[in-house]
Design a protein around this nucleic acid. Structure first.
Lengths: 188, 188
DNA sequence: ATTTTACGAATGAACGTTCGGTCGCAAAAA
DNA sequence: TTTTTGCGACCGAACGTTCATTCGTAAAAT
C-alpha cells in the first residue's frame, strides 16, 4: 500500500501501472490481487484511508470552545502538520479528488470532512467574527490557498518554513474575517 | 485538438487514449500522426496554446497605470472570463501542471506568465498597499483560492455567479492588502 | 501531375487480471 | 516428538485487451 500510495501520488491513477506498483513493493504483480480485488478497489481503499487520516487530524486538533481566531490557527497548524508528515497521502488526496474510479463510499467521505468545518464557519458568521458570506465559498478559498501553498513549496517555488506557513495563515485569516466595523469616520 | 483538449482535461494525460481522441474528433487514429509526432508532442502543443491564451488574457486586460486595487479587480475579472469562456483549457492547464511529459519549452512558459504578476505585486509591496511579504506566497495563495473556487463551482458546490465571484475577489483582496495602519489608538 | 492529407490494417509492447501451483508454517494427528 | 495436514501468502507464466505508433496506399487538394 505504501508503494501504491507513492506511485498514485506521483503519476495519478492511470499513470501508475500495477506491475510498477508491484515492483516498487518488491512483490509479484499477482500478489496484489490476493489482497485487493482490483486496481479500482486498491485506489479506493487508499483514498478512504488517507481521507479518514486527514479528517481525524483536523477534528482532534481543533479546540471546540476557543475563540474563532484560535480555532482557525489550530486548524491551519493541523493541516500543515498533516501535509508535512504525510506528504504522499496529501498529494494523493489532492490528485484523486473526484476521480471517476472512486466509488460511492469514497465519495461520501468528502462531506464528512467538509461539514464540521462548514458548521464552525457558519457559527463564526452568526457571531460576526467571520465574513457575512455562505461558508462554502470561504472554505474553498482557504482550502485552495492552502493547497496552492503546499504545491508551490513542493515544486520548489519557496521553502515551506514555519515563517511562510504563519504568514500565509495570517493572510488567509484576513481573507475570511469580518472587516473592521467603520468606527467614527466613514470613507465615501 | 478540440477533442484532445476535452479528453485530456477530463481524464488526464494517461487516461486519455489516442483512439478515444481520434474517435471524438471523428477521425482515424493514424490521422493524428500526420499532424503531431506523437502523444507527447500533442499534449505539449495543447499546453503551450492554453498557457499562452491565459497569459494573453491576463496581460491585455490589466491596466498598467491604475491603482493596485483596480488592477487586482481587473486581473480577477480576466481570470473569471477565461475560466468561463474556455473551461476546458482552464481545467487542462490545472491538470497538466508540471507533468513529466511536458518539455522544456512548455515549462518555460510558466515563468513568462508568473513574473509579470510578481512584479506588480512587488511594486504594490513597496508602495505599502499590499502586504510586506515576498510575492510568491501571495501569488500562490490567491491563485490557489481562485482555482479552488472554479473547481468547487465545476463540481456543483455552488453556482459561479457574478455575486460569488465578486465576493471571493473581495475576500482575496483582503488577504493580500496591507493591514490598515494603526491610526491613533493601538491594541496591545 | 504532384503534393498533401487521411485511413485501414497491422505491430510490438504494456496493460490489468487470472490460474495453477510452490513455499513456509502453525495446528492436528500419530 | 515426529509426522501429517491444512492454509494463507506468494509467484511464474500466461490470458485477452488495449495502448501508441507505423506503413502502404487511396483519396483529395493544389
Amino acid at each position: 500500500m505504501d508503494a501504491a500510495l507513492a506511485l498514485f501520488a506521483e503519476r495519478g491513477f492511470h499513470g501508475a501501472a500495477i506491475p510498477d506498483i508491484a515492483e516498487r513493493a518488491g512483490v509479484a504483480p499477482a500478489t496484489i490481487y490476493s489482497h485487493f480485488a482490483g486496481k479500482v478497489e486498491l485506489v479506493n481503499e487508499l483514498y478512504r484511508r488517507a481521507k479518514l487520516a486527514l479528517g481525524a487530524a483536523l477534528l482532534t486538533s481543533v479546540p471546540a470552545a476557543a475563540p474563532m481566531r484560535d480555532q482557525f490557527a489550530a486548524l491551519w497548524r493541523a493541516l500543515v502538520r498533516f501535509a508535512r508528515e504525510q506528504p504522499r497521502a496529501f498529494a494523493f488526496l489532492e490528485l484523486h479528488h473526484h476521480g471517476d474510479y472512486l466509488d460511492d463510499a469514497s465519495r461520501a467521505l468528502e462531506l464528512r470532512v467538509l461539514t464540521p468545518i462548514a458548521e464552525v464557519l457558519e457559527l463564526g458568521r452568526r457571531r460576526g467574527v467571520t465574513k457575512d458570506l455562505p461558508p462554502h465559498p470561504l472554505i474553498v478559498t482557504v482550502w485552495g490557498a492552502f493547497v496552492g501553498m503546499i504545491k508551490a513549496a513542493r515544486l520548489g517555488y519557496f521553502e515551506l518554513s514555519d515563517d511562510v506557513c504563519a504568514q500565509v495563515e495570517a493572510t488567509c485569516w484576513d481573507a475570511i474575517r469580518a472587516p473592521a466595523p467603520a468606527t467614527g469616520e466613514t470613507r465615501s
